[in-house]
Amino acid sequence: AIERGSKVKILRKESYWYGDVGTVASIDKSGIIYPVIVRFNKVNYNGFSGSAGGLNTNNFAEHELEVV
């Protein structure tokens, strides 16, 4: 089962992080479509409006993740 702290591989082909491994930061139990927040070591794009980097978290559905 996917739980907080799990290392997961991203299976969503259109994702910037496809094939990468991230760490589960949290799981939303409220029934939303993409409840699993995954944190990565790298950012997906340069930040804007003065922020240092881009996003390094993204929401995924459990079926888009594979525990490694």
Rank of each mutant, 00 (worst) to 15 (best):
E14M: 06
I2Q: 00
W17R: 03
G31F: 12
E62K: 08
F40C: 03
A52L: 11
S26C: 14
V36W: 04
F60T: 00
G31Q: 13
N59I: 05
L11H: 05
V38K: 00
Y18E: 03
G31T: 09
G50E: 14
K13A: 08
E64C: 05
N41V: 11
I27W: 04
S15I: 02
G54V: 10
S26I: 06
V36M: 02
A52C: 15
I2L: 11
I33H: 11
V68K: 03
V38Y: 00
V68M: 09
E14A: 09
H63S: 11
G31D: 15
V8W: 02
F48L: 14
T23L: 05
K42N: 11
Y16D: 05
E3M: 14
I10E: 01
V67L: 12
S51E: 15
S51K: 05
S51G: 13
V8L: 00
G53D: 13
Y45S: 15
G22R: 05
I2D: 01
E64T: 02
P35M: 14
S51T: 13
S6I: 08
N41H: 11
K13E: 08
S30C: 09
L65M: 03
I32D: 12
S49W: 12
N59Y: 13
V38M: 00
G31N: 15
V21Y: 09
E3F: 11
G19K: 05
I32K: 12
N41E: 14
E62W: 14
R39N: 09
I33T: 10
I10A: 01
I2Y: 03
I27G: 01
V8M: 01
G31Y: 09
G47F: 07
V38C: 03
K9P: 03
F60W: 02
G19C: 10
L55P: 07
R4I: 15
V67R: 05
Y34S: 06
E14Y: 05
S30G: 11
V38S: 00
S30A: 08
N41A: 11
V36Q: 00
I27N: 03
G22Y: 05
E64Q: 02
V36I: 14
E62S: 07
F48P: 15
N59S: 13
G31H: 12
L65S: 02
L11M: 06
Y34H: 11
V24K: 00
T23R: 04
G5Y: 04
Y45H: 15
I33C: 14
I2W: 03
G22K: 01
Y45Q: 15
G31P: 05
I37C: 15
G50N: 11
V24A: 01
S15G: 01
N46E: 15
Y34W: 09
I2T: 02
P35T: 07
D20M: 11
V43N: 10
F60R: 01
K9W: 04
G19V: 04
V36P: 00
I27T: 03
N58C: 15
N59Q: 07
N58H: 15
Y45R: 10
T57S: 10
R12E: 01
I33S: 14
T23S: 04
V38N: 00
K13R: 08
G47R: 03
W17L: 01
N56S: 10
R12Y: 03
W17K: 00
V8T: 02
V21H: 04
G50M: 07
I2E: 01
S15V: 03
H63R: 06
Y16G: 04
I32M: 13
N56K: 07
N59W: 09
V24W: 03
V38A: 00
F60K: 01
D28T: 04
E3K: 13
V67M: 07
K9H: 03
Y34T: 05
S51N: 12
V43M: 11
G31E: 14
D28E: 11
L11I: 04
G5E: 03
I10V: 13
D20I: 11
F60E: 01
R39I: 14
V43Q: 08
A52R: 04
S30L: 05
A61E: 05
E66M: 10
L11K: 06
S30R: 07
G22C: 06
V36S: 00
S26H: 13
T23A: 03
K7Q: 13
K9T: 04
V21Q: 04
G47E: 15
D20A: 12
G53A: 11
A1Q: 14
F40V: 03
A25C: 15
G50H: 08
G5L: 03
V38H: 00
D20F: 13
Y34G: 05
V36N: 00
W17Y: 06
D28S: 08
W17G: 00
A1K: 13
V67P: 07
N46D: 14
E64L: 02
V38T: 00
E14K: 04
I37T: 14
V38W: 00
V36R: 00
Y18L: 02
A61F: 06
I33F: 11
K29G: 10
N46H: 12
V38R: 00
Y16N: 05
D20E: 14
